[in-house]
């Protein structure tokens, strides 16, 4: 239902008419939906590029908007990006909560890393931790990784897309408690993001495992 693929040829051959579902006898809706979704995404992309262009030129005039549209269309055609499956859900309240938490965490962690640089002991050994995310969508994994990279203390090193695992390097992490808190932070980021922009499936996954650290007791993967 949520896939963007066209009907495979073998299925077409089996049905009475091309492009008709075997079970319901109606033309599958997903084709139109997927085309529509792709077009809307391209439109959103073009809109944001035009907005960026207009902001760069600091003036909203016919010339800037037109040139922005032309350039945006050119860029999206030449540098074609694969479509991102957006979840279609955007909760303003949770997005604001996420933004506020992100800013606070950014400041707190920057001060902490700056303190590491100034204090006598500098920093201890780090660790590479694995976080098995509850979500399975590309966009959400990317957002979690970006946020974790931005907040001082963790850098995303690698990811396992198929299993939905993120590998991060955490600074000054030479005890179990610090590893625990590092993982807890990543899961917290994921929870905030799922509540803000996650799809319904992600929300269900979130409700299924609300506490991956506590329940599974320091799982290692």
């Amino acid at each position: 239902m949520s896939s963007n693929s066209q009907e495979p040829n073998s299925q077409k051959a089996n049905s009475q008419r091309p492009g008709v579902s075997r079970t319901t006898g109606r033309r599958p809706v997903k084709n139109r939906q997927s085309k529509g979704r792709g077009f809307v995404q391209q439109l959103v992309l073009v809109f944001f590029l035009v907005l960026l262009w207009v902001m760069l030129w600091d003036s909203v005039s016919v010339l800037s908007v037109l040139s922005g549209v032309v350039l945006a269309l050119l860029v999206t055609r030449v540098f074609y990006l694969p479509p991102v499956v957006l979840s279609g859900r955007f909760n303003i309240i949770h997005a604001v909560i996420f933004g506020a938490w992100f800013l606070y965490s950014l400041m707190h962690a920057s001060v902490e890393v700056a303190w590491f640089a100034f204090r006598r002991r500098a920093v201890g050994a780090g660790s590479v931790i694995a976080c098995d995310l509850r979500t399975s969508s590309d966009l959400l994994m990317t957002l979690v990784a970006d946020t974790a990279s931005l907040i001082p203390g963790s850098i995303i090193i690698d990811s396992d897309r198929a299993l939905g695992v993120l590998y991060l390097h955490v600074l000054d992490c030479d005890s179990e408690e610090k590893i625990f808190s590092g993982k807890a932070q990543v899961y917290h980021i994921e929870e905030l993001l799922i509540r803000a922009v996650g799809s319904h499936r992600d929300l269900a996954a979130l409700r299924a495992t609300p506490d991956p650290m506590g329940l599974k007791g320091g799982e290692r993967r």
């Binding site: 201890g124 050994a125 780090g126 660790s127 590479v128 931790i129 694995a130 090193i157 690698d158 590998y167 992490c173 030479d174 005890s175 590893i179 290692r220 993967r221």
Partner: peptide, 8 residues
């Protein structure tokens, strides 16, 4: 200098 390396 890695205390634990779960990626490895």
């Amino acid at each position: 200098m890695l205390y634990r390396d779960e990626l490895a």
